[in-house]
């Protein structure tokens, strides 16, 4: 079975996501990058599930999809609130956690 190909694809997607999270300044883009990371993880889960001939991987992938949907919902709401308050969606402007 072509496990390695799937894993490479997943790693690529994940790394793209990490790069996006670290490098992009716009909050929506960061959120999208997180989705990319989750997609990479999902591919891994499905691939390993098929490899081991088990359903668990698919079950987990479905869970992750659901959670990702909820997460995006909340994330976009937060971004919207940040935009309303700060009139910007630039993450560099959000530093109220600064100690």
């Amino acid at each position: 079975m072509l496990l390695n190909e799937f894993l490479i694809l997943a790693a690529f997607l994940f790394c793209t996501g990490v790069y996006g999270v670290l490098a992009r300044k716009h909050a929506v883009l960061v959120l999208m990058s997180i989705e990319l990371m989750l997609a990479g993880v999902n591919i891994n889960l499905v691939a390993f599930g098929a490899f081991h001939n088990s359903d668990i991987g698919q079950v987990f992938a479905l869970f992750v999809l659901t959670i990702a949907a909820a997460e995006v919902g909340i994330g976009l709401a937060i971004v919207l609130l940040i935009y309303r308050n700060l009139h910007s969606a630039d993450l560099d402007d959000v530093d109220s956690l600064k100690g």
Binding site: V18, L22, L91, V94, D95, S96, L97, K98, G99
Partner: peptide
């Protein structure tokens, strides 16, 4: 002293994490 590390920027934290 320790708080200087706390920039408040999420991406910095994520970078540290990665």
């Amino acid at each position: 002293e320790v708080r200087k590390i706390q920039t408040g920027r999420l991406q910095f934290y994520a970078l540290v994490l990665v």
